[in-house]
Amino acid sequence: PDFTLHWNGITIHFKGIDEEQFRHLRELLDRGVSLEELEELAKELIK
């Protein structure tokens, strides 16, 4: 499924991740993950 997340004025689209992965990403963003960390995470998910 696809998810869209609005965070700090940025709209991020996640394609092909499951709800569990999306929930994990939201928790990280709510905790204050940096954009660099988010990019690293995205690379991991894409593999």
Rank of each mutant, 00 (worst) to 15 (best):
T11I: 09
I46P: 06
D30S: 14
I12P: 00
G16F: 10
L35T: 04
I17S: 02
L35M: 10
G16K: 03
R26K: 10
R23C: 05
I46G: 11
L28M: 12
I17P: 02
S34M: 05
L35G: 03
Q21C: 08
T4L: 07
L41G: 01
T11K: 09
L45M: 14
R23S: 05
L41W: 15
G16M: 05
G32P: 02
N8G: 06
T4E: 05
Q21Y: 04
E27L: 15
L25E: 00
P1I: 15
E37I: 11
S34K: 06
I46Q: 09
F14H: 00
E40C: 06
N8A: 10
H6C: 04
S34F: 07
D2K: 11
L45K: 02
L28N: 03
G16W: 08
W7M: 07
E40D: 10
E37D: 09
F14I: 08
E40V: 09
D30L: 15
A42W: 13
Q21P: 02
L5V: 07
H6K: 09
L5W: 03
L35K: 04
R26P: 00
L38P: 00
G9N: 05
R31F: 07
D2Y: 14
K15M: 11
F22D: 00
P1S: 14
L25G: 00
T4Y: 12
I10M: 10
L41C: 03
E27A: 15
E27H: 14
T11E: 08
E39N: 08
I12M: 08
L28S: 06
I46R: 07
H24L: 15
F14R: 00
F14D: 00
L29G: 01
H13F: 11
E44L: 12
E39M: 15
L38G: 00
I10H: 11
L29P: 00
W7L: 10
L45F: 13
V33L: 11
K15F: 13
R31W: 08
N8E: 06
K43Y: 08
E27Y: 15
K43D: 08
E36I: 10
E39P: 04
L25D: 00
L35W: 08
K15A: 11
R26C: 05
V33S: 11
E36N: 08
I12T: 01
V33I: 11
F3W: 08
D18W: 04
R26F: 06
L28P: 00
L29Y: 10
G9I: 01
D30P: 02
L45N: 03
L35N: 03
L25S: 00
D30I: 14
W7V: 07
L28V: 07
L29K: 03
W7K: 09
N8Q: 08
L5C: 03
F3R: 02
E44H: 10
I12L: 13
T4K: 07
D18G: 08
G32S: 05
E37A: 10
K15L: 09
K47E: 13
L45R: 02
L25M: 06
D18E: 06
H24M: 15
L41H: 05
E40M: 11
I12Y: 11
E27N: 15
T4R: 07
F3N: 02
P1T: 14
K43C: 03
E36S: 11
L45Q: 04
D2F: 13
F22T: 01
R26Q: 06
D2R: 08
L35P: 07
